[in-house]
Each structure stands twice: as structure tokens, then as C-alpha cells.
Computed example of a mutant assay.
Amino acid sequence: MWSSTRSILWFALPLFLILSSIPAMAHHGWGWATDQEFEITGTIVAKRLGNPHGEVTLNVDGKEWLIEVGQPWRNQRAGLTEELLSEGRIITVHGHKSAKPDERRVKAERIVIDGKDYNLYPDRSS
């Protein structure tokens, strides 16, 4: 009896761990975004910087867009600071928008502030 229960646990536990990690992998990849390049300009109305990635909310023609920026190390490497992403600043975001037509969300690859480029993903052309 003990050995059959143990066998089930050895099989079920790894399967449970693999399946429970799928939603996290789906969120943090690029799968939710379109392949098409997208550009949007707006005024920062809110921000949350930190892990797993930062978020900036833009007001664009009276509608709010959620912009995913990089992880803290990626933002720092690109030269993006909290001050540059402060409320009231106008920025242009180059990246990829959500594949869901009604979702106003963009994964930023490059951000332009006061005419200067801040490239979050230098290995990608944006």
C-alpha cells in the first residue's frame, strides 16, 4: 500500500509543479503581444516600478494605456530613472500591443523622452 501511494506522489507532484507554473510563464513572455511594431505617445499619470517588471500608465486622448517597462536592472541599463518616468511627463513608447483588441496594454522595447531614446531591448529592432 505504501509503495503505490509513494509512486503516485512521485508522479503527481512534478506534474502539479509543471502545470501550476504555466500561467506565470505565459504572463512574463511576449506571447500575449502582437508581432507588429506599435508606437504610442501620451502623458504619464501613474507608475509602479519594480519586479517582475515596471508599469507606467499613460493618458492617451482621455484613455489609459498600461505600458510594461523593464525589470529594475533593465531600466537602469537603458538609463531610465524614476525621475524620467515621473507623472506629467510626455513619452513615446515603441513596442508591441496586446493581441486582445480591447486591451490597452503595450510591452515597451524603446521609450523616447525629450527626444532621447531609452532602449530596453537593444538586441531587438524597434
Rank of each mutant, 00 (worst) to 15 (best):
M1H: 08
M1P: 02
M1V: 05
S3H: 15
S3T: 12
T5N: 03
L9V: 12
W10V: 13
W10F: 15
W10Q: 14
F11D: 03
P14I: 09
L15W: 10
L17Q: 07
I18K: 02
I22S: 00
A26N: 09
H27S: 08
H28Q: 11
H28V: 02
H28K: 05
W30F: 09
W30N: 08
W30M: 08
G31N: 06
W32K: 07
W32V: 01
W32I: 04
A33Y: 15
D35T: 06
D35Q: 05
E37T: 01
E37P: 10
E37V: 00
I40F: 02
T41A: 12
G42N: 10
T43M: 13
V45L: 11
A46T: 08
R48L: 06
L49F: 06
G50Q: 05
N51E: 15
P52I: 09
G54A: 10
E55V: 08
E55L: 12
V56G: 09
T57N: 07
N59K: 15
N59L: 15
V60I: 14
D61M: 09
D61C: 00
K63Q: 15
Q71H: 07
Q71A: 14
P72H: 02
W73L: 02
W73R: 09
N75V: 05
N75Q: 12
Q76K: 13
A78V: 10
G79P: 11
G79T: 13
G79M: 14
L80P: 06
L80Q: 06
E82Q: 11
E82P: 05
E83Y: 09
L84V: 10
L84I: 13
L85Q: 02
L85T: 01
L85K: 01
E87N: 15
G88H: 09
G88S: 10
G88P: 04
I90M: 08
I90E: 15
T92V: 05
V93M: 12
H94C: 04
H96N: 12
H96W: 03
S98C: 06
S98M: 06
A99C: 00
K100R: 10
E103S: 05
E103W: 06
V106K: 06
V106P: 01
A108P: 04
A108F: 05
E109Q: 08
R110I: 03
R110P: 01
I111E: 04
I111S: 03
I111M: 06
V112E: 14
I113Y: 03
I113G: 04
D114A: 14
G115I: 03
D117F: 14
Y118N: 12
P122H: 04
P122M: 06
S125E: 13
S125W: 02
S126E: 06
S126L: 01
